[in-house]
């Protein structure tokens, strides 16, 4: 059994956690659950008041929390929104997450937002933009940010480097950490005809502060396969294998299992987290 709930635990432990989804909130409010920590999508809690914030307050009292935002738009050439930074700062000051993260992506310009993680060319110009934005975010939030590798479906003619080199340079320049999403790495490499294992080996281990795991789906597009990062199924075998490799090469880190579409009953998600926990246990502490 999970230990008796403590009061507002702050640090995210070196263990497996799950993404807290609305469908499971009642499970957490009515009984302790066997999971070491939880992650929420920050933007889902950017409201003035009401049940969501009240429920998160209650759950936060018992579980370490990571806040994962999806709309900082770190890759936006126009820069990050000071208003959005202020909203997130208020949320993080209230809930005191042990980890915060967002994506190597962008999602809007000039007062127009798109709810997707849009890609940007991986080159020097983009690196300058993202580094400037990450510095502004870390200063504005007063916390170290973990930047996640997103799932990629496109390659730009203007690409000059791969994700590992780009994120390593970003971490070195800004002091940010990295959230290594193993499923995204696998999906991107499959879609862009790259070898995931060799790319993984070039991620800067010291900067990696968290792993994500999730399911994806296979689409046949004409005669080619496109993997889509839909977070709607169990973690696939190749992703589990890649995770094992990451644990050996980079080391154990807090690991999150995400499931966002076709959300299953909580025990199914907890089972996925237990599998991640077992792999973490095989590697042992850092």
């Amino acid at each position: 059994m999970r230990p008796a709930p403590s009061h507002r635990p702050d640090a995210v432990p070196l263990a497996a956690g799950i993404g807290l989804r609305h469908a499971h909130v009642l499970d957490f409010l009515t009984a302790p659950q066997e999971v070491s920590w939880l992650e929420v999508h920050s933007e889902n809690y950017l409201c003035a008041g009401g049940p969501r914030l009240a429920q998160l307050e209650r759950i936060r009292a018992d579980y370490p929390l990571s806040c994962h935002s999806v709309a900082l738009s770190l890759g936006a050439a126009e820069g990050v929104s000071p208003d959005h930074l202020a909203r997130l700062r208020a949320l993080y000051d209230r809930f005191q997450p042990g980890l915060i993260s967002d994506h190597l992506a962008w999602c809007g310009v000039a007062g127009m937002h798109a709810p997707d993680l849009l890609p940007l060319p991986l080159n020097g110009e983009s690196l300058d933009v993202v580094a400037r934005n990450v510095e502004r975010v870390q200063e504005g939030l007063g916390r170290r940010l973990l930047v996640e590798n997103p799932s990629l479906y496109l390659r730009f003619q203007a690409d000059e480097m791969d994700e590992a080199d780009f994120l390593a340079a970003l971490a070195a320049r800004t002091g940010c950490g990295l959230l290594l999403d193993i499923n995204n790495l696998y999906v991107s490499c499959q879609n862009r005809a790259r070898d995931a294992a060799s790319l993984l080996a070039r991620f800067p281990a010291a900067a990696v502060g968290q792993y994500h795991l999730a399911g994806h789906t296979r689409l046949m597009v004409d005669d080619a396969v496109l993997l889509v990062d839909d977070h709607g199924s169990p973690v696939s075998d190749p992703v589990w294998a890649l995770y094992g490799q990451a644990l050996r090469l980079i080391g154990p880190r807090p690991t999150l299992v995400e499931w966002d579409t076709e959300v299953p009953p909580l025990p199914v998600l907890l089972g996925e987290a237990a599998q991640a926990q077992a792999l973490l246990g095989e590697v042992g502490p850092c």
């Binding site: 798109a114 060319p121 496109l154 730009f156």
Partner: peptide, 28 residues
């Protein structure tokens, strides 16, 4: 015009982002 060739037609791959945005906002 700025995309590199890939196994999946870049037009179809770019459309995935259009479809994602449309589906997300329809859900909202």
């Amino acid at each position: 015009d700025g995309l590199a060739p890939a196994a999946v037609d870049p037009v179809r791959a770019l459309y995935l982002h259009t479809a994602t945005v449309t589906a997300a906002l329809t859900g909202v």
